[in-house]
Amino acid sequence: MLKILVVDDHAVVRSGLMSLLNGKHSMEVIGEAADGKEGIQAAELLKPDVVLMDLNMPHGMDGLTATTELKRLMPDLAVLVLTMHDDDEYLFRAIHAGASGYILKSAPHEELLTAIRSVASGNAYLYPTATKRLMSEYIERLKHGENIGPYESLSEREKEVLSLIAKGFSNKEIAEQLIISVKTVESHKSNVMEKLGLKTRPELVKFAVKKGLLNFE
């Protein structure tokens, strides 16, 4: 039985997902949360197999921040973003945050079930049109000779954090500059180190120098 946690600020959506999934298809909704912070707390307590994560939760921690933090705390946890946003920017940001999958709320029930099973098995899942767009962009970048390496896999915020760390700013100073929490800075730093295959701060600085990121203007 797959254990599922639903994180969405709309009670009607949570209720509908529970009705769809509970006790059916070898799935069970073991908890629900109305924002990212509650979702993190519930995940740590309940240990689900899959978290269904909404992106926009205006009255609490958003889904992208929560996904990043969940993957830091529970690296093996599968997070499936369930959203109304059919938008490349949200898609890429969700992937960079560590989501295992991305599916639209308008998707048929059978597609949602397939996506849940896929991410629970350790695989990735993107809705069909998103996969097509990603492949098209990748091919175009290859055609234009772009270097698609570890640095290019970083989100814009992760690149900002990398540059500021390399310049010697503390986590607290970076948090103040970017108007985010220290914990979020630490999460971005962890993601950067993992994506770049770096272990220490000196290695990070050396990488930043090679990339020409130490412009102090």
Rank of each mutant, 00 (worst) to 15 (best):
R14K: 05
E194V: 01
S100N: 13
R117V: 10
S19K: 10
I148C: 13
P108R: 00
P75E: 15
M61P: 13
L162C: 05
E38C: 02
G145P: 09
E28I: 00
Y127F: 11
A130P: 09
E44Y: 00
A175N: 12
D49G: 08
D88V: 13
D8I: 04
S187H: 12
I40N: 07
T131L: 09
L126W: 09
E89Q: 11
L82G: 03
I174W: 06
P128L: 04
G145M: 08
L113R: 02
G31A: 14
Q41W: 08
E44C: 06
A34I: 14
R14T: 02
V50S: 07
A43V: 01
E140T: 10
P58C: 09
S118N: 13
E32Q: 12
N191C: 12
S187W: 04
T83E: 08
G168K: 05
A43P: 03
S121L: 06
G16S: 11
E69V: 07
H25A: 09
G122Q: 10
Y102G: 03
L178S: 12
M1G: 08
M27R: 06
R93C: 09
L46W: 02
E110L: 11
K167W: 00
A166S: 14
L77W: 02
K71S: 09
V29R: 03
Y151F: 10
V182A: 10
S106F: 00
G168V: 08
V185A: 05
G197Q: 05
I180T: 11
E203M: 03
A94T: 09
V50F: 07
L52F: 08
E38N: 06
L20P: 13
V29N: 10
R72I: 05
V50Y: 07
V185L: 03
R93N: 12
D86I: 06
G149R: 05
D62H: 11
A99C: 01
A34R: 13
L20A: 12
L2E: 13
I179T: 15
G212E: 06
Y102Q: 04
N123D: 15
T114G: 14
N123S: 13
E89D: 15
S121P: 08
I103R: 00
M53T: 06
S187Y: 06
H96W: 12
D35H: 13
L104I: 12
H25Y: 15
G212W: 03
A66Y: 00
T83M: 05
P128R: 01
K71Y: 11
